[in-house]
Amino acid sequence: MSTRPATVIAFLHGGSHAQLATLADPALAPYRIRPVHVRTGTFDALAEAEVIVVSDRLRTDLLTPWADTILATLDRGATVIVFGENAAGTWLPGLREQTRPTVFWWWRTGEDHRLRLCAPGHSAWEFFAHRAVVWHYHGVLEPPEGAVSLVDLHTEDGARDGSILYIDETSTAGRLLVTTMDPVYHHGSGFMPGATQMLYSTLYWATGGRGKTC
């Protein structure tokens, strides 16, 4: 059986219960994820990473010092994933972010979640199912020019309000996926349909299926 090295994945986290539970998930073991603590880790820990996962819900004051290093990895061609509630609009160039009320339990109440899938021909849809990307959000994004929104939030009257998930493959030499969803928190906490699918699908997309070593 031929073997190939696993993609080097750095997981920037803050040591919360949900983040540690996610890192301990046996289903993620084949990815050989390298944890990097946002408080005690060093910038050099990201130097060899081909994929950087910025876990959701990090403290802004602890995350911001990492911004230049994360952006530098994009410039050298890495893939960066920024999950939700990380004030991405304050440190990712060209991005605007606004908070929005979250429709938590639309599948129980019958409310319209007002999320609409976009760019049906984009290659990312080979990795993401509907259930993985329509479940939750914490605000809307207005991506930089050239980025592709995969999921938009619409207002009650049907107008586009902004993106909750986009991929930028034009602004830098790398790939950037940004979302206002927070799958690590919900996966690690053991609730919210779709969060686990989102987390797994994003890692699979980022590695192109190269998590396993054989």
Rank of each mutant, 00 (worst) to 15 (best):
residue 2 S to L: 14
residue 2 S to A: 12
residue 3 T to K: 14
residue 4 R to Y: 13
residue 4 R to V: 09
residue 6 A to D: 09
residue 6 A to P: 06
residue 7 T to M: 15
residue 8 V to S: 14
residue 8 V to H: 14
residue 9 I to Q: 10
residue 9 I to M: 10
residue 10 A to D: 08
residue 11 F to Q: 02
residue 11 F to P: 03
residue 17 H to S: 13
residue 17 H to F: 10
residue 18 A to M: 06
residue 19 Q to S: 01
residue 19 Q to W: 09
residue 20 L to H: 05
residue 21 A to Q: 08
residue 21 A to M: 06
residue 22 T to D: 09
residue 23 L to E: 01
residue 24 A to D: 08
residue 24 A to S: 07
residue 25 D to S: 03
residue 27 A to F: 11
residue 27 A to K: 10
residue 28 L to V: 01
residue 29 A to E: 08
residue 29 A to S: 11
residue 30 P to F: 09
residue 31 Y to E: 06
residue 32 R to C: 06
residue 33 I to N: 06
residue 34 R to H: 14
residue 34 R to E: 15
residue 36 V to D: 06
residue 38 V to W: 13
residue 38 V to Y: 14
residue 41 G to V: 00
residue 42 T to R: 13
residue 42 T to M: 10
residue 42 T to V: 13
residue 43 F to W: 09
residue 43 F to H: 12
residue 43 F to E: 15
residue 44 D to N: 12
residue 45 A to N: 07
residue 45 A to C: 06
residue 46 L to I: 02
residue 46 L to N: 00
residue 46 L to H: 03
residue 48 E to D: 15
residue 48 E to F: 04
residue 48 E to R: 07
residue 49 A to L: 13
residue 49 A to I: 05
residue 50 E to K: 02
residue 51 V to N: 08
residue 51 V to Y: 08
residue 52 I to L: 15
residue 52 I to F: 10
residue 53 V to H: 06
residue 54 V to Y: 06
residue 56 D to Y: 03
residue 56 D to N: 11
residue 57 R to A: 07
residue 57 R to G: 01
residue 59 R to H: 09
residue 59 R to P: 00
residue 62 L to I: 00
residue 63 L to D: 01
residue 64 T to C: 01
residue 64 T to Y: 10
residue 65 P to Q: 08
residue 67 A to G: 00
residue 67 A to S: 06
residue 67 A to E: 04
residue 69 T to L: 11
residue 70 I to H: 07
residue 70 I to W: 08
residue 73 T to G: 09
residue 74 L to G: 02
residue 75 D to A: 15
residue 75 D to W: 03
residue 76 R to E: 06
residue 77 G to L: 07
residue 78 A to E: 00
residue 80 V to F: 14
residue 81 I to Q: 14
residue 81 I to V: 14
residue 82 V to A: 06
residue 82 V to I: 15
residue 83 F to L: 10
residue 84 G to I: 04
residue 84 G to N: 05
residue 88 A to Q: 15
residue 88 A to G: 04
residue 88 A to S: 15
residue 88 A to F: 07
residue 89 G to E: 08
residue 89 G to Q: 04
residue 89 G to W: 05
residue 92 L to I: 08
residue 93 P to G: 02
residue 93 P to E: 01
residue 94 G to E: 11
residue 94 G to C: 07
residue 98 Q to D: 08
residue 98 Q to P: 02
residue 98 Q to T: 09
residue 98 Q to S: 14
residue 99 T to P: 13
residue 99 T to A: 12
residue 102 T to P: 05
residue 103 V to A: 14
residue 103 V to K: 15
residue 105 W to L: 11
residue 106 W to E: 07
residue 106 W to G: 03
residue 107 W to V: 04
residue 108 R to Y: 12
residue 110 G to P: 03
residue 110 G to K: 05
residue 111 E to H: 07
residue 111 E to P: 02
residue 111 E to Y: 07
residue 112 D to E: 09
residue 113 H to K: 05
residue 114 R to C: 05
residue 114 R to A: 08
residue 114 R to K: 11
residue 115 L to D: 04
